[in-house]
Amino acid sequence: MKILLGKVLINYPYFAAVILFAIGSATVLTRSNLFKKLIGINIMESAIFLMFIAAGSRRDGVVPILHMDDSLRPYINPLPSALMLTGIVVSVSVTAFALALIVRLYRFYGTTDAKRMSDIRNGVAKE
């Protein structure tokens, strides 16, 4: 157990990512407000970005831009950073689309709460 926790502590960025992921997905699954769901999605995606970037990190590493003077210090792995650029764009696109859907739903239902929407649809909502 001690060894396990020690290893977890060494890998603290991954652990943080896991916790963020859990928070994000719990928000998505338990909240009924559509905005909160969307924010949950964003938290979750950030968690994965964090994990990726951490995987590319290196002790005493520097940004992966070639510089002539100092080649002693290692560069960090540039691949995860490049991938996450794409990942962020994807995340932005999803967010934009989800917001558009929320706007359309709000126009119709006058609420952003999923529970109230289904109440209205079932015709039992009272002002």
Partner: peptide, 18 residues
């Protein structure tokens, strides 16, 4: 209804993507 279905689909699918 379509917007609601699309939203649910999008959220769950994005969870899957994650």
């Amino acid at each position: 209804n379509a917007a609601k279905a699309a939203f649910n689909y999008l959220i769950l699918a994005t969870l899957g993507s994650g």
